[in-house]
Amino acid sequence: MPDSKAAKAPAGRTNWAALRAMPDDEIERIATEDEDNPATDESHWINASVYAPSGKTAIHATLDQDVVEFFKRNGSDYSARMNEVLRNYMETQQDETRDR
């Protein structure tokens, strides 16, 4: 039996050596002709922003499906709302501990 999930992972279909050897213009041509690759131009990125949230830690959490669906109903920023609920709970617990 394998010791880790990585040991069981199937090999990908990408020929990385061929891709690394391919000129950029050839990669661009293939991407442009790919039906699954939506065409975008510079206007697509006009409102984009890149940022790294400070003080955030990525975790893997298993949550009840109905809880996640509840938060997702109000938009894609559901993880931020979940974080706010957890923060509120944490701060309430800290306040109660201080009051004792």
Rank of each mutant, 00 (worst) to 15 (best):
R13N: 14
K8W: 09
P2N: 10
D36A: 13
R81Y: 01
R73K: 15
G55T: 01
P53N: 05
S54Y: 06
H44V: 03
M82T: 01
N15K: 07
G75C: 04
T92K: 13
K56W: 14
P10F: 04
M22D: 09
N37E: 04
W16R: 15
I30K: 13
F71K: 00
M22N: 08
M90P: 00
E35V: 05
E91C: 06
Q94M: 13
M22K: 13
W16K: 15
I46V: 07
D25G: 02
P23N: 11
T92H: 05
D3E: 14
D99A: 15
M90W: 15
I30S: 03
M1A: 14
K56S: 06
V50W: 12
D64T: 06
A18M: 11
M90T: 10
D24S: 11
N83H: 11
S43R: 04
K56R: 11
T14D: 10
T40N: 04
W45V: 07
S4D: 14
M90D: 12
H60A: 04
T14K: 13
R98V: 09
K72H: 10
A80Q: 12
A11F: 01
D25Q: 07
D77G: 15
D24L: 15
M82C: 04
P53V: 01
S43V: 02
R81I: 00
K8E: 15
H60E: 09
W16G: 05
P10G: 08
D77R: 10
V68C: 00
L19G: 02
H60Y: 09
A6I: 11
I27F: 07
P10S: 11
E33V: 03
E84F: 06
E26N: 05
V85F: 02
V67M: 13
R100E: 04
K5A: 10
V50D: 09
R81P: 00
P53I: 01
H44A: 14
N15M: 02
S76D: 09
S43P: 00
I27L: 11
T40Y: 04
R87Y: 03
A80V: 12
E28S: 05
Q93E: 15
R100Q: 03
P38T: 02
H44I: 03
N74Y: 05
R29Q: 11
S76I: 01
